[in-house]
Design a protein around this nucleic acid. Structure first.
Length: 581
RNA sequence: GGCCCCGUAGCUCAACCGGAUAGAGCACCUGACUUCUAAUCAGGAUGUUGCAGGUUCGAGUCCUGCCGGGGUCGCCA
C-alpha cells in the first residue's frame, strides 16, 4: 500500500509499453529510475527522473521520452496531470482521493503500516556491542547498543530475518586480568591487605564477586599458584560479567538473540578450519611485512609471520594471523567467527564497531569476501564517540565503576526511552553530544520531547473526540468520509504520513536508523502545525461539534498520524507516551 | 608517511543508490494563549556546501589533488 511503490510500478509499466511499441529500445536498466516527492511541492505530488536516466542509453532526447511517458501515465485513473518540466522531469499530480486512501490503510494496518517485504526474508546478522566481559557497560557502549538494536528492528520491519548477536571477547588477556582483579577482591574479602597494580580493574563492581568466592572457597585459593585458580576464577568472573552486561542491555530494552564466545573457537579446531578455508584459496602464506611508512616504531624489526593475503580483496597490506610467539592474533579467531556466521547461512552481515576500529574494516571485509566467495556482503558501521555534557558543560562522573560513566548512570538518570531516541538523533559516523539536561528538556529544541508530545497530543485530541460522542476506534474512524480534508495543512500531513513506507525502505537499505528519528520529527512538526491552525481558525479545529462527519475525518487523520509515530518509535525502541504531564 | 571518518547558515545538524531555487532547530526580530496541553504555532533574516580541478543533461553527494579536525597503523582486544 505504498503509494510511491505504486507510482513507481506505473512508471515502469509505462516504460515497458514504450519498449513494446519500439519507442524505446529493450534491455534498459531501470535501476536508477526513481519516483519521489519533489522538493518544491509546487511541482506536483511526485516526480520521476525516468526520462533523463533513460535518455542516454535510449539515445533519445529526455524531454521527448518524458512527453511519451506523460501521455501514457495521464491515462491512469489516479493521475490527474502529468507535466514535463526542466531538463526532463515528469511531474505527476494524483487524485486527492488516492492520498486520502492512505488514512484508512494506516488505520487498518495499525503499527504494521509500512512494514515491507523489501528484505525478502533474507537472513541478516547484526553483531553489536561485543564489549569485553570485564565490567559494566559504559556510555560508549550505549550508542552501540541502541544503534545496533534499532538497526536490527528497522531491518526486521523492512522484511529481513534478523539475528542480534554479541561476540564475547573472552579469548584474550583481558579476561585473565579480570580474573586477577577478582582474586584480589577475594583476598580483600578474607581480610588481606591488597593493592591494585596498574592494569588491573579496580572498580567496586568486583567486590561482591570477591566476597562470593571467599564464601564458596574459603582460604583454598590463597597462596596457591595462579595457574591453579586462574581458569576457574576467570570462568566464574566472566560469567558474572556477562550477567551484568545482560542486565545492562535489558535496562535499555536490548535483548540479544545469541551470545557467541570467542573462547569457544580456541582448541576446537575452528580457527584452524577457517584458516584452512583461506589456505585452500591460496590466501595464507609465510612472509615478512614491510615496515609501516613514515615514523618507524622503535622496536620494529622484520619478522616472518603467517599472513592473510587480504590485499587480494582490497586491503592495503596483508595481515598477520599469528603473533611472533606463535599464538593467534585477535584477527584469527575473528576470521573464524565470521566464517561461522557465513556457514550458519546468513545472506548479509553487519558489524557495529567503534570508530577506533576503522583500520580493521578492510581486512574483515576481505576475510568475509574470501570465505564466502564474494557472496555475503559485510557492512561495517562505525559509531563515533559520545561526548557527555550537563547543562552545556563537559561532564565526567566517577561512580561505581572506577573512572567511567556507566550505561546504568545514563539510563537511571534519563530513562531508556529518552536515551534511545537521543542516541539516534545523529548519524552513526558523526560524533554525538549527549547533554543530560537537554535531553530532558520539554521544548521543541529537544526532538525526543517534540515527537513524544505529538503522540500524546494526538491521544488528547482523540480523547476529546470520544468525549464529544465520536467513536474513535480504528474500525470506526476507517469509515470516515475524507473528501473534506482539503486544507493545506491536512494535505501536507497526509502526504508526510504516506511517505512512511518509503522512509522505512530507504533507511533500511542505507542501514541508517537515524533517518527514522528525523522523519518522525518532520511528521510531528506537520502535526503540531495543523493542530495550531485550529487555534487561528475555528473552522480548522479537529473537533467541530456542529460538523460531526468532518470531525470524524480529521480524527481519522489524527489517529493515523499517531499510529505512524508509534510505529516509528517502535522501531527505535521507544515507548510512545500517551500524556506528558 | 599510508589508510579510514568528518568538514554544509553565527551554533547544533538534515538532505532518501546524483535531481529542480541546499533544508530544520537554536540564537535574533515581529506576531498569536477565556487552549482540541502556547510544553505550541505563524512570519522575517541567514550559504562560494573547506579549496581547486574533473565526470555528468544535472554534483553537498561520484573521481583526482590539496587544506583543516579526529581515528588508526605487526607481537592490544
Amino acid at each position: 500500500m505504498d503509494i510511491y511503490a505504486e507510482m513507481k510500478a506505473l512508471v515502469d509499466a509505462a516504460i515497458a509499453r514504450l519498449v513494446a511499441e519500439d519507442a524505446l529500445p529493450g534491455g534498459l536498466d531501470l535501476g536508477a529510475v526513481t519516483v519521489e516527492p519533489p522538493r518544491d511541492p509546487a511541482h506536483g505530488d511526485m516526480a520521476t527522473n525516468a526520462a533523463m536516466v533513460l535518455a542516454r542509453p535510449a539515445k533519445a532526447a529526455p524531454r521527448a521520452i518524458a512527453e511519451a511517458l506523460a501521455g501514457i501515465l495521464a491515462e491512469a485513473p489516479v493521475v490527474v496531470s502529468a507535466e514535463v518540466a526542466g531538463p526532463g522531469f515528469l511531474n505527476l499530480r494524483l487524485d486527492p482521493g488516492r492520498w486520502f486512501a492512505t488514512v484508512p490503510a494506516i488505520l487498518a494496518a495499525g503499527r504494521d503500516f509500512g512494514r515491507s517485504g523489501a528484505g525478502g526474508g533474507r537472513r541478516i546478522n547484526v553483531e553489536f556491542v561485543s564489549a569485553n566481559p570485564t565490567g559494566p557497560m559504559h556510555v560508549g557502549h550505549v550508542r552501540h547498543a541502541v544503534f545496533g538494536d534499532a538497526l536490527a528492528s528497522l531491518l526486521d520491519f523492512a522484511g529481513f530475518d534478523v539475528t542480534r548477536e554479541y561476540y564475547i571477547n573472552d579469548g584474550g588477556a583481558q579476561v585473565d586480568v579480570l580474573a586477577r582483579s577478582v582474586h584480589l577482591r577475594y583476598l580483600e574479602a578474607l581480610g588481606r591487605a591488597v593493592e591494585f597494580p596498574d592494569g588491573t580493574y579496580p572498580g567496586d563492581y568486583l567486590i561482591p564477586l570477591g566476597a562470593e568466592l571467599a564464601e564458596k572457597h574459603g582460604e583454598s585459593l590463597v597462596g596457591t599458584d595462579h595457574e591453579e585458580w586462574l581458569p576457574d576464577v576467570r570462568d566464574f568472573a566472566t560469567e558474572a560479567m556477562l550477567a551484568l552486561i545482560r542486565e545492562d542491555l535489558a535496562s535499555l530494552g536490548v535483548t540479544m538473540d545469541r551470545f557467541f564466545s570467542e573462547r569457544s573457537l580456541y582448541g576446537t579446531g575452528r580457527i584452524e578450519a577457517a584458516l584452512a578455508a583461506l589456505e585452500a584459496r591460496g590466501l595464507i602464506y609465510e612472509g615478512v611485512l614491510e615496515p609501516p611508512k613514515g615514523k618507524l616504531p622503535e622496536d620494529w624489526e622484520p619478522r616472518e609471520q603467517t599472513l592473510f593475503r587480504s590485499t587480494a580483496y582490497g586491503d592495503d597490506v596483508d595481515r598477520p594471523v599469528k603473533k611472533s610467539d606463535g599464538g593467534w592474533t585477535y584477527f584469527a579467531p575473528d576470521i573464524a567467527y565470521h566464517f561461522d556466521k557465513i556457514e550458519r547461512g546468513y545472506d548479509e552481515l553487519i558489524d557495529v564497531l567503534g570508530a577506533d576500529h576503522g583500520g580493521y574494516v578492510k581486512r574483515m571485509k576481505a576475510a568475509v569476501a574470501a570465505l564466502s566467495d564474494g557472496k555475503v556482503p559485510l557492512d561495517v558501521k562505525l559509531c563515533q564517540m559520545v561526548r557527555l555534557f550537563k547543562g552545556g558543560e563537559p561532564f565526567k562522573m566517577s561512580k561505581r565503576a572506577g573512572n567511567f560513566v556507566t550505561l546504568r548512570d545514563v539510563v537511571e538518570q534519563v530513562g531508556p526511552d529518552v536515551t534511545r531516541f537521543a542516541m539516534l538523533t545523529r548519524k552513526n559516523d558523526a560524533p554525538l553530544d549527549f547533554d543530560f539536561d537537554k535531553v530532558l528538556e520539554q521544548s521543541k529544541d529537544n526532538p525526543v520531547f517534540y515527537v513524544q508530545y505529538a503522540h500524546a497530543r494526538a491521544q488528547s485530541v482523540l480523547a476529546r473526540g470520544a468525549a464529544a460522542g465520536i467513536d474513535t476506534s480504528d474500525a470506526a474512524l476507517a469509515t470516515a468520509v475524507l473528501g473534506g480534508l482539503g486544507a493545506p495543512g491536512e494535505s501536507r500531513l497526509i502526504r508526510k504520513a504516506a511517505e512512511w513506507p518509503r522512509q522505512v525502505e530507504s533507511a533500511a537499505a542505507a542501514h541508517e536508523p537515524h533517518r527514522i528519528a528525523f522523519y518522525l520529527f518532520d511528521l510531528a512538526s506537520e502535526f503540531h502545525s495543523l493542530q495550531h491552525q485550529g487555534k487561528l481558525d475555528p473552522e480548522l479545529r479537529f473537533i467541530r461539534e456542529e460538523a460531526p462527519e468532518t470531525s470524524r475525518a480529521r480524527l481519522a487523520l489524527v489517529r493515523a498520524t499517531q499510529v505512524v509515530i508509534a510505529a516509528g518509535l517502535g522501531i527505535l525502541g521507544v515507548t510512545p507516551m500517551e500524556e506528558m504531564r
